[in-house]
Write a protein that binds this DNA or RNA. Structure first.
Lengths: 343, 343
DNA sequence: TTGTACGCGTTATCAA
DNA sequence: TTGATAACGCGTACAA
């Protein structure tokens, strides 16, 4: 592997000059610069990142910490790759690389983070599977590592965050079901810890109350993730004494289980139970068509990347970018799974 | 961030001794070692990777190059995260970290690789979306970068590879359909470039011939990836003059499109067309149940990681591991989508 | 058993 | 405009 020294020797000039030429410094003769660039091209020179990192104190890498065995809707595989793609598309403009790292289960995730951070592997981090109280946030803030969370948290250290607009979705979903005659509307939630649970519950309670409906916590149903969770949810609902006529879900795999669970009982989505919630492109595979809320994941990725840039001042171009803390908008895809209340 | 120098000063001993203590060298007094480890713990010392990499020439990172906009069955989102998880579980034993990097579309992927490799970001790489003739393989082999491919290639530089057992699947699928009375069996393939296309086609031709059936290239159908491809495939087949009674697919999303396409035409999988192929856990969401072949992705990931270790001699423990070049086994999940030929 | 000193590849400072 | 040199953090050969 050719180093800058080789390059300098090859050209018969000093290392310093070569470095300046390669880094577009002003004080280098155009002819020299050209010679250097040409030779670099020919010899396939690429600067060694370790040397560079050591000298500059930055690695050019942004780490996305993916928690493998996390619960919650983000568990989904479908979700991330599009987001990553969007992120990288922005990072490329800044010479940054996205580096996805697999963190172990949440108990060990703090130790993991300590390693990553201590070793200075990344200039900035993105956390996902944000928890309501999230020690990772304090950890990174204390160490002054720039970071962004995908998901909000009660642990607020002024960090940028992006999140799905759960409030908007819940409000829209409840309204929509209400307008179609539904009065007993169930809400499916992931198990505690994750912050989105609380966001959704609050939004649900608020909207139910606003519409003058009674809040009934038996209609708030904890559900395991995945299709099995969906099946269980279908059975649970159908076996309730005063069962709801509609359910709002947040795990994009749930509807598949719901459909199957209902089918097992000889029932049909939209006729026997209105179903509505957050899903992905995959939902288009369901029949009857699933009414659902979708996000533009590539855009979300781009937005996350911009939020990361905020924390890396040396990359700011003209003006300082704003602190991003926002919920990304959803799109409603109308289907037949939340038809008018029958009878 | 505390450096080794800080640590040494804090303890009133030399940097060299601290380093030796931390790296478990023999020639350091037990008492000193203990003092050092304790102080390191207290001050939260973690060695800076840039300094280490520069000195040792290795980064402790293994890069998985993910091609965002690749065609072929591997495009799938569902596929990778489990594989990554399996890989990391092995790497952890060796103090390695998996780093997933998003490569741009295949045209630019060589330049991208050049960057990664030149910057010495990773000690070893894993390539996916392997192409039949793949210049990336020559590139890495020429530079003596250890690497593993997920998927085989005609470009053979002696590298380890892992692949799905497409041959086994095709042979089993053709046999199975044949035993159920099917004689006109279609095969859906991804568009050229990717190597798996050729592997599947060869296996198909061989098995068809072995059973004494005529090979008919009109039964080999190029299909776009994703659910849309599946819908198109359903229509294509049903509009053929002498249409096949069965189809084997390789894109795990295809069956969703096939089911929908058939439904559009008032037809049912398993009754009007036998459907059988490679899928994932997601397939359990289809009704009627999809007969399909599945892989244990976590194990595949572990195996890939072991193949990577092969190329990193400094990590070999007792004995040198073997060169891994193998197809991973599949599991058949029996369903109702490939029922007996009717009539 | 410990300390000193060098060098990995790079960039930045300063002098020429 | 260029060259020499220091420094980033670390591991190790060699000297003590």
């Amino acid at each position: 592997m050719t180093s800058i020294k080789d390059l300098a020797q090859h050209l018969g000039i000093s290392i310093g000059t070569v470095s300046r030429a390669l880094n577009d410094k002003l004080d280098v003769k155009p002819a020299t610069r050209e010679r250097v660039l040409k030779a670099a091209q020919e010899l396939g020179y690429v600067p060694n990142q370790a040397g560079r990192s050591l000298r500059q104190g930055s690695t050019g890498l942004v780490g996305f910490v993916l928690e493998t065995s996390s619960e919650g809707m983000m568990q989904g595989d479908l979700f991330f790759i599009r987001v990553f793609d969007g992120m990288q598309s922005v990072f490329s403009e800044y010479g940054l690389h996205l580096m996805v790292m697999m963190s172990p289960s949440s108990e060990k995730s703090d130790a993991y983070l300590e390693k990553i951070v201590g070793r200075r592997l990344a200039d900035a981090l993105v956390l996902s599977s944000t928890r309501r109280v999230d020690p990772r946030i304090d950890f990174l803030a204390d160490r002054k590592i720039p970071f962004v969370t995908l998901g909000r948290s009660q642990t607020d250290r002024g960090q940028p965050w992006l999140d799905l607009d759960f409030e908007g979705i819940i409000a829209d979903a409840v309204d929509r079901l209400h307008a179609r005659g539904h009065r007993r509307i169930a809400l499916s939630l992931p198990r505690p810890a994750l912050n989105l649970r609380y966001v959704m519950l609050d939004a649900y309670r608020e909207q139910i109350t606003r519409l003058g409906l009674p809040f009934n916590d038996r209609l708030v149903i904890e559900t395991d993730p995945g299709d099995n969770g969906g099946v269980a949810l279908a059975h649970h609902i159908m076996e309730m004494d005063d069962r709801p006529s509609a359910v709002i879900f947040s795990d994009h795999i749930h509807p598949f289980g719901l459909y199957r669970g209902l089918a097992d009982m000889g029932m049909t989505p939209g006729r026997d139970l209105a179903i509505l919630g957050i899903a992905t492109r995959l939902a288009s595979l369901l029949s009857p068509n699933l009414t659902h809320y979708r996000f533009h994941l590539h855009d979300l990725g781009r937005r996350i990347a911009q939020a990361v840039i905020y924390g890396l001042p040396h990359l700011h171009k003209e003006k300082k970018p704003p602190l991003i803390r926002e919920r990304v908008p959803f799109t409603l895809i109308e289907g037949d799974s939340d038809a008018e209340m029958k009878g």
